[in-house]
Design a protein around this nucleic acid. Sequence first.
DNA 1: GAGTGGTCTAGACCACTTT
DNA 2: AAGTGGTCTAGACCACTCG
Lengths: 248, 248
Amino acid sequence: MNLAPLDRESVIPLYYQIRERLLEQIRAGVFKPGQSLPSEQEIAEHFAVSRMTGRQALKSLRDLGVTYSVRGKGTFVSAIKLEKDFRQVTSFTEEMKARGIRPKSKVLFFEVVKADEETMNALQLKTRESVVSLRRIRFANTSPVGIEWSRIPQRICPDLLKTLDPQASLYETLAQRYGIKMAIADEIVEAGLARGEEAGLLGIAAKTPVFLFTRISYLQSGEAIEFVKSVYRGDRYKIVNRLTRLKA
Amino acid sequence: MNLAPLDRESVIPLYYQIRERLLEQIRAGVFKPGQSLPSEQEIAEHFAVSRMTGRQALKSLRDLGVTYSVRGKGTFVSAIKLEKDFRQVTSFTEEMKARGIRPKSKVLFFEVVKADEETMNALQLKTRESVVSLRRIRFANTSPVGIEWSRIPQRICPDLLKTLDPQASLYETLAQRYGIKMAIADEIVEAGLARGEEAGLLGIAAKTPVFLFTRISYLQSGEAIEFVKSVYRGDRYKIVNRLTRLKA
DNA sequence: GAGTGGTCTAGACCACTTT
DNA sequence: AAGTGGTCTAGACCACTCG
């Protein structure tokens, strides 16, 4: 074990500093998949912290899915890849960047409107309140891959029409200017065929296979924030998912 | 707060008992979304445990996604639904049952064969070892919805050909007889059109939209256990996903 | 029997929010 | 000032695995 000492003056918690040092060495291949990490006791001694603190560091690595522990044996590095190109609660922009692709957008519609029935239902709105409606064509490296239509209650982002650069990431703007962070999104994916208008906008023949997405995004509190309907080209877009077991 | 006392003789950990009691009351609506749960201190006093134990109970609820905590304010019930009809690392059988649908299967092929290139690659096999190859038509309430083709190294389930009832859940058999529990699965979903043989087996016209799944399932250790290629009817099957933020 | 992770205690100080 | 969750300590006993 060869790990740099902790900064006891830092505001960063000790367990977090330990976690980062271990993570670094896992990524660097010092601890390889299948191998065991230092035990809780060893970590406690090496960093001169209590065993509970060392344990918390190992626990947080488990929560990341990087390691797993077996009672009586130890904590081991998982061989499961950490890659980030799985779909998460992210915008198109973030997803494309994670895949090393340059995202671009063309705005078709960007206005404040009264919520329709479907939107009221999806966002759990009690009144027909105002929502920001944004419809964009999405490009990956200059070729069109999908059409996205987002609706967000105006109340939570009052001047979005002025502040959003439609080329930029909607999610980034919401996070930076309004402190809104999506925690979870539920989505339904259907397989269908491109219809006339869509096919035209996407530059494909009608009846080409497409994905139809219906997504609702939530804050950690459970408040519904965004309702999105999208159409993506089946010939240029693949869904990459990581499925996990439910904890309970 | 009105929570039954703990069983101090039980082998079930105290924090887990507390967690279950809180979960029960959340499900029963005693604690409603948006409302706060008892504080760590209150839990410690009420159950006569240390604050750390009460804290662990609340922490485990957060890990489930049922609640969230705000420093200085408290722990609150999330309004996000707990429903289990999201896709997880589950078999067709489990997924259908969770949706209240009767699953059925018809076996097309069930034999031990030498792994082909694609399977060797997917399952990280170093030699052309034997794999159990199982191809089935999947029915939901008597109508065909998909075709699944699984391959599993024979070495990890030596006599599967004899022990598996092809009507039963493959995953259940693997778990019960061989102690194999899938922890994670990575999948790619593509949109396509049904081809001749598939269309026939699924009872649909050629060129109907279909989902094409390619999935690899892993143990927690990262060992690849199952390689599956599937075709599902786009007109009768929808993908229901829950996306989350990566922890790191 | 030695080593491991899992649970638990009874304190402590801190940063933060609310009153 | 009082209450909250976040971190940390220095112990303890337990169940489990392995040689």
